[in-house]
């Protein structure tokens, strides 16, 4: 929670800079948040292009009205909620809904020293995509964004207990898929 709060403070600082200076200050906010926003949006839209559209629309809105973010008590949660709303709007607009079965849409980091982790990471993303959206969102916010269930409930507009139970179900399902990976890692050592 502490890390999440610290990050939220950094988001707020960038929003304040945006209010004081010019739209050019959006670069700072982009550099700070884009990767995290894209990965969150990608778990909702299940397509990177749509996720990037949602992030771009959100940041453009913030550039126009930075006080929205600055005046929020939880700027990071607020930004995530904005991205979520945009991502859901894109999903509604997309008439020909198609589920991406593979991960070919994703743009990933590829470095030679991380090749062995590549398969595991792809397995994680695939497992997250196989989950119902409402469950994968909670997992992303809990593990990657290190949010409490209270904070997650604010982003998703649900009760903390609902968030906790969705998380429990999701981890159970993810465990079935990812447990073999964990065992493999131990056997390789």
């Amino acid at each position: 929670m502490e890390q999440s709060d610290t990050f939220s403070e950094r988001v707020k600082t960038h929003a304040a800079r945006l209010c004081e200076s010019s739209p050019a200050a959006i670069t700072g906010l982009y550099d700070l948040t884009a990767q995290r926003l894209v990965r969150y949006a990608a778990t909702i839209t299940r397509h990177q292009d749509d996720a990037e559209d949602a992030v771009q629309t959100t940041l453009v809105k913030i550039a126009g009205q930075p006080r929205l973010l600055q005046s929020s008590n939880q700027p990071w949660a607020y930004l995530l909620r904005m991205v979520r709303n945009e991502a859901l709007a894109i999903l509604r607009r997309r008439r020909h809904w198609h589920l991406v079965q593979n991960l070919t849409d994703l743009i990933t980091w590829r470095s030679t020293d991380q090749l062995e982790g590549e398969d595991r990471n792809e397995a994680v993303w695939q497992a997250l995509r196989d989950l119902p959206r409402l469950q994968s969102e909670v997992v992303v916010l809990k593990i990657w964004e290190e949010m409490t269930f209270q904070q997650i409930s604010q982003v998703l507009e649900i009760t903390p207990s609902t968030a906790a139970s969705r998380y429990r179900y999701a981890i159970e399902k993810l465990g079935q898929k990812l447990r073999p990976l964990a065992s493999e890692e131990v056997s390789h050592v």
């Binding site: 990767q35 990608a42 990037e52 792809e122 593990i143």
Partner: peptide, 23 residues
């Protein structure tokens, strides 16, 4: 399982043109 998921946190990155496009 949480550790495994956490290790994939930085697997996905934004495309190169998203930054200039957004700005």
């Amino acid at each position: 399982i949480e550790d495994i998921i956490l290790s994939a946190a930085h697997h996905v990155r934004p495309s190169r043109d998203l930054r200039p496009r957004t700005i």
